[in-house]
Design a protein around this nucleic acid. Structure first.
Lengths: 242, 242
DNA sequence: TCAAGTTGTCTAGTATCATAGACAACTTGA
DNA sequence: TCAAGTTGTCTATGATACTAGACAACTTGA
């Protein structure tokens, strides 16, 4: 276990805290168990004991661990049960993206097409769009936040329609579109920004899976494009092939 | 665009650097394009110009941007597109993008099957395996590190064969397997550990795409299973559908 | 009871982070 | 040619991060 020696822009105490949190998340430190002593952790990460204490303090503040004077520091929280593991298919998560009635509208606002968005939607750069920010949950655990763009010309008032229907499928039906399919899907990963971290209830610096996708109608005409950010520690995509 | 105000353990310059990098990754700043001036970026993120310069310096060091005195700072790199199909080969993808693919053996050693590995490969827990650690590059830039497991019984001496052939496809041909296809693929994301970060020439704390996959022969019999870690900032998976 | 091991708290010094301002060196377009 | 706008470099200051050492307060088990 070696940390960054050159300046990485991530504080040492944060790296230690993340390391311990990962240990809790993947079961190396089980719930209720005693963590190694502060001195031992300090030696493991080759940092000062005060640095370890700072790391443990942030974890304690978030309720992950509990320190007992004279005794030790104990793991408080159990890993959340994530039902979206083995049974879930990529097509159901991403293909159904935003179509589940579980979604929650955060914000809808006007936007204009960047060159990228215009190309995805088959519009001209600067074309008026409606941008919808939404979050989806499973068992009250936030799974992903999405930003969806639709053409204002094609779907006037889409923000309000989405707010009432809370479903992208129903929204499209409202505009006379009964069937559509996935056009392209691109997947990469990034670190959650402050806003996404807050909405996903994630610690800062935690990774998210970023999925860019565009849905098209049966003729292949682009309808909506969106960017979803999934909490990587809560999700696993399964690609079907063969 | 708001940054963490309370102490998050992530330096401001790093948050700015990540923000700009994300802009490059998602196309808000296209390759070759000029970034906003340092003053403008500083105002956007509400930080000092020196902080922006520090952020840009790290991006320049990694080859993502290039500063020109008196003129501006320009976007240098684009992400490599990596299509996910049932028959994709690393060499074909990289070669198709006009880059030169290279594979490099890091280590080959004996291992035994955990329950997970045994299930993937259709073996019994504890069965002898050969574990191969390798890294793949495109034009001298490391793209991914992989850990590959093969049955020792089925592929005796596989480590040495791989060392000479430097290609999984050629290794399988050596054992009389002419064709194979992708069985399952699971994708998630994580933070690079110290070893992977070093091999991928990544800063610590940077995200990787973790791909677990198993290749099967034409009968569906599992041949090899592997876990690959892709540098998320250099790659984008493209799922083809419809 | 007592020694060993634990967390809690204090002081102090050095390095890095972030801000602020000024000016030099250079490019671009009018 | 010249003004406006750009990046490059310098000095300076305060806040935060990290290390170091010491000791108090407390728990545990022999």
């Amino acid at each position: 276990m070696t940390l960054q020696e050159t300046s990485s822009g991530v504080a040492l105490w944060r790296q230690v805290a993340d390391g311990i949190e990962r240990g809790i998340a993947d079961g190396r430190f089980a719930a209720g168990e005693k963590l190694p002593g502060e001195m031992e952790i300090a030696e493991t990460y080759r940092v000062n004991r005060h640095t370890v204490r700072r790391a443990l303090a942030t974890l304690a503040e978030r309720g992950l661990v509990r320190a007992e004077r004279g005794s030790g520091t104990y793991v408080e929280a159990a890993k959340l049960a994530y039902p979206l593991r083995s049974r879930t298919r990529f097509s159901e998560i991403v293909g159904a993206g935003g179509h589940e009635p579980r979604g929650q509208l955060i914000d809808a606002s006007d936007d204009v097409a960047t060159r990228e968005l215009a190309r995805e939607l088959g519009l001209k750069t600067g074309a008026p769009l409606i941008r919808i920010e939404s979050v989806r949950l499973a068992d009250r655990t936030p799974i992903c936040v999405s930003t969806t763009w639709l053409s204002t010309t094609r779907f006037p008032d889409a923000g309000r329609v989405f707010a009432t229907t809370r479903s992208m499928t129903k929204l499209l039906v409202h505009y006379g579109i009964r069937d559509y399919r996935r056009g392209t899907t691109k997947i990469t990963a990034a670190i959650a920004d402050a806003a996404d971290a807050a909405r996903l209830d994630l610690a800062l610096g935690r990774p998210v899976l970023v999925v860019d996708s565009t849905d098209v109608d049966t003729d292949g005409t682009p309808l909506v494009t969106k960017r979803s950010r999934f909490a990587a520690e809560r999700i696993e995509f399964v690609v079907e092939s063969g």
